[in-house]
Design a protein around this nucleic acid. Sequence first.
DNA 1: CTTAATATGTACGTTTTCGCACGTATAAGA
DNA 2: TCTTATACGTGCGAAAACGTACATATTAAG
Lengths: 256, 256
Amino acid sequence: MLLIFQQQGEMGMTVTENTDAGLRNHLLAALPRKEFARIESDLEPVSFALGDVLYESGDKLTHVYFPTTAIISLLYIMQSGATAEIGIAGNNGLVGIALFMGGETTSNRAVVQSAGAAVRMKGGAVKTAFALGGVFQNVLLRYTQSLMTQISQTAVCNRLHSVEQQLCRWLLINHDQLQTDKLVMTHDLIANMLGVRREGVSIAAGPLQGHGLIKYVRGTITILDRPGLEAAVCECYQVVVDEYDRLLGEYVPRNR
Amino acid sequence: MLLIFQQQGEMGMTVTENTDAGLRNHLLAALPRKEFARIESDLEPVSFALGDVLYESGDKLTHVYFPTTAIISLLYIMQSGATAEIGIAGNNGLVGIALFMGGETTSNRAVVQSAGAAVRMKGGAVKTAFALGGVFQNVLLRYTQSLMTQISQTAVCNRLHSVEQQLCRWLLINHDQLQTDKLVMTHDLIANMLGVRREGVSIAAGPLQGHGLIKYVRGTITILDRPGLEAAVCECYQVVVDEYDRLLGEYVPRNR
DNA sequence: CTTAATATGTACGTTTTCGCACGTATAAGA
DNA sequence: TCTTATACGTGCGAAAACGTACATATTAAG
């Protein structure tokens, strides 16, 4: 275990051409044409490699990130070095809530869990747009509430459910954010996310593979039977999905 | 275990005379005189008995509550009936975030953990005041962020720490919100909050009493040695306190 | 092709927590 | 005062997860 992805900084990050990439993030796509036009010039496409760190715990945030193909994990790191994931943001979310909530900082690390692209927006621009109210503010606040549900459910699930159930939940959440059935992810990294031992993940994953729900080889997990996973997962998964839909479904299409 | 406090509705709630009680909630007290004056007539003192339910999971919220002497617990209830606390709000917080975040509802139950008073404000009035921006909006959003930290830390603590450590944390958090060293609370209720067995709480509490940190008899726990508890608790407690201070310390005095 | 690094499998004793059962102690009501 | 309800103590065996150690399999590098 220990100190995964540490201090890799933004080395792998690349700033790419400005395009309409923003529209591939569902929250941005939800904005009315007028509001989107207002912020469009503030959007800057970037791309991330696995393990890139968007910010460290305590860092003053500079940007809000709207993932398009990347998946970002919000990780808490204990003094001991043990880690646990508290939330995930993909193309239906954003990273950097503290910027518009007023705190400027959070006590977690945002790390790239699946390489890909995002668009980012400078903190000042976010605050300006947020202060105007409108759909932008509404969407940001509703997303924040949905993230709270996600974190709450993580807390509950950590308390009450088995590692195998949590692994199912984690796989489904990630699958939701991806355009593919293949997750590039080792058992060891998953263990860091779930806050359990690497062996614990292997032991939980074994039966799932045995029942034909997933298949994995050396760092790649393939989702074979999504309905099967949905049948094996605890209620926590659906609660979060439903709450997201309730809060943002008016604006945002479902991924799956 | 199971279904504690269920469906007691607001039976024990009493609407009392309108006073300056609002100022005993730290978030309200933090408002500039002008902003407080603007909302003062919307504040309605209420008092709660142990076990009163402010709202059920899924209920459309009608008010935001600012506790003054009451302590409100945010509980998640599984389909199985198992419960787990995800957050606590006392006189340095508020209950009903979903009203200004846009969701109108949350997937948890708000239940009175310690009898006492609060002031409440109708949803419409909250939204109106929130939309004006100013310190009111700022404080509400910052509090929301601090609550996210609290929930996150609950998630992490549930994953990584022992029942005894979590009990210490729970005792300290509650002590912070109280004007007394006596907590009216049975092991069974604490077990519901922590999401563990009643026996688990007794087994964890035994050594704490043995070392003279607390004393308990039939439904009342007395904090004897707060520094001792602070020495026994995991880092999670302080992280939440510090983050609250960072976010709101500019406005709000420390309880202890 | 060989070697090194990484990923996963497996085993074993330990610790924590659970579920259940029952005993004891305190408080409240008849 | 006696009964009853409630709160807490205790003792099991079972299950889950842990820490540790080491084996095996796959990929990457030289």
